[in-house]
Design a protein around this nucleic acid. Sequence first.
RNA 1: GCCGGAGUAGCUCAGCUGGUAGAGCAACGCCCUUGUAAGGCGUGGGUCGUCGGUUCGAGUCCGACCUCCGGCUCCA
Length: 597
Amino acid sequence: MKVVLPDNSELELPAGATGLDAARAIGPKLAEQAVLVRANGRAQDLRLPLQDGEPIQILTIRDKDDPDALAVLRHSSAHLLAEAVTRLYPGVRLAIGPAIENGFYYDFDFPEPIREEDLEKIQAEIDRELAEGREWVRQEVSRDEARELFSSDPYKLELVDTAEGDISIYTQSHDGVGNFTDLCRGPHLQDSKPIKALKLTGLAGAYWRGDSSNPQLTRIYGTAFYAQKDLDAYLERIEEARRRDHRHIGPQLDLFHFDEHSPGSPLWHPHGMVIWNELERVRRRENAKRGYLEVRTPIIYDADTFWTSGHFPKYEDLMFKVDVRGQQFAMKSMNCPGHMLLFGSRLRSYKELPVRFAEPAPLHRDELPGTLHGLLRVRIVTQDDAHIFCTEEQIQDEIAGCVAYARYLYELFDMKASAELATRPDNKIGTDEQWDHNEAALETALALNEIPYTLAPGEGAFYGPKIDLFMDDALGRKWQMGTIQLDSQMPHRDPDRAFRRRLPVLARAGAGAGAAGRGGARRAGADPRASAARRGLPGRGRGAKRDDRQANPGGRAREDPRDRRLRRPRERREPRGARARRRAIDPRAFRPPRQAC
RNA sequence: GCCGGAGUAGCUCAGCUGGUAGAGCAACGCCCUUGUAAGGCGUGGGUCGUCGGUUCGAGUCCGACCUCCGGCUCCA
């Protein structure tokens, strides 16, 4: 058989030859330095056979910046970590240990919790392994053999059962030491020599398979490079980014600060307001150019409003509630309710359409403490939020307009946009034709604007697909910025019947949408509460409300407002933890930002 | 929320096994007048995150809480 080399020359090989065989055929030095073969564009273990006629590229230790070459180095590093931990902590159970963007991690289930100090010990053990050296041997096994091998490792067993294709294992050892075997798809290095720098960087809790209903594991992070100076440069880059952290610079420049008396809510200083007002000016100017009509609606609405809008069934725990003379109100976490009330305040003619309402209102969200992060994840956000009421025929143009607007903003701030297109979920309402049409409209808009996106199948809201826009920060963390959501089902939930016919609503948030949630758990059902809400159809909210009232008659005891003034600020209304227990949910699974109404 | 870390003067931090708080920078005062990464001398400044407990005595030990930092997506 033949394979094609990068210079387009052909290499003749015996049938079943592997990447390593190909390297050997070219030269001994190449074979020695090879770490990976890219076959047909895909990273492949050197030990695996090549296909006849496919183009290949041998990556070596000199391709030290190649993402695939780094990934194989780091994945092998993760296995060294696993070996060290297995030796140091008898009884530990192994979960998974992939390479990630800037390093690798391995998830463990420790019999006893470990602390940060333990990392030093583990690091020393890994350093010893590196000094001894390790070679990796790949073996293919049957599913039954794999189950036998990992019979005491529940996580590995689950992986065996859910794995696609053949099962492989890797054993790492050298001169009889090590001898650590792990279930692994590969690819791996030939041996540990290319790992010139390996550093454990952190410790964190992480749920098995990213699902909060699963046990929490202990994740150990690390990174590795083909050269010590690359590790040094990486650490220096992290340091530099830290020095430029807006959370330090902001207060230093007297722009804003945070106070523990209102966690997650910046206090803007005079200098900061100069920037704020400039952003406002840009927002007004650009909105005006695009035909948005500025409106202003209340911050606080009664519970009825939020049951109808669907916020309460889904997001009640993340909204600030206000008790007004015994009646429950809440602070809006999105502008939709006000805009719906405004649009529905009189009968509208389709000749008015499209109507684009924009509102720069402060929105309040009771984000969980562990998720707050400077100005990027806050409890109060003023975003350029808008709702567009239009006809089915106008959808495509309006969406394209929204995406183009988003692109304009990203370019204005010199940010690289990336997007996620979330499509129909299982509990969707509306017809397939409608969804086909709407998803296509979103996709077309993204393509027209050349914004790279990934598909998130099944992640759309039950009422329509959406586009979430992201930015990366200096440390490579992803933050959700804007969103564009299409709701073709609004009339179903509109109690006031302001619509004579079914009218789609487009909800979009652009500049200033800084409080967006991070891309959390992707898996549907990760949040039991949210998925339950998704199952509920529009209109069921009212029933749910009655149930809720019965379950919780009267709610919290009322208090005299005068008492409130007298009360010392630190005093709490209820036992600590009661509230936390009530909302035992996975914060990441919750995508608070802007589920439209 | 969960896991790990942290909370001592405006800032950066030290304070080991408990005995009533320190440094550098900043600020302020005086001196020097010195051409742009830190001239000299001196002074003031801390309920050691909050509440409670142990103790003759707690920044230091125990408990609860608050806030902040890293992480909880990258699928054997």
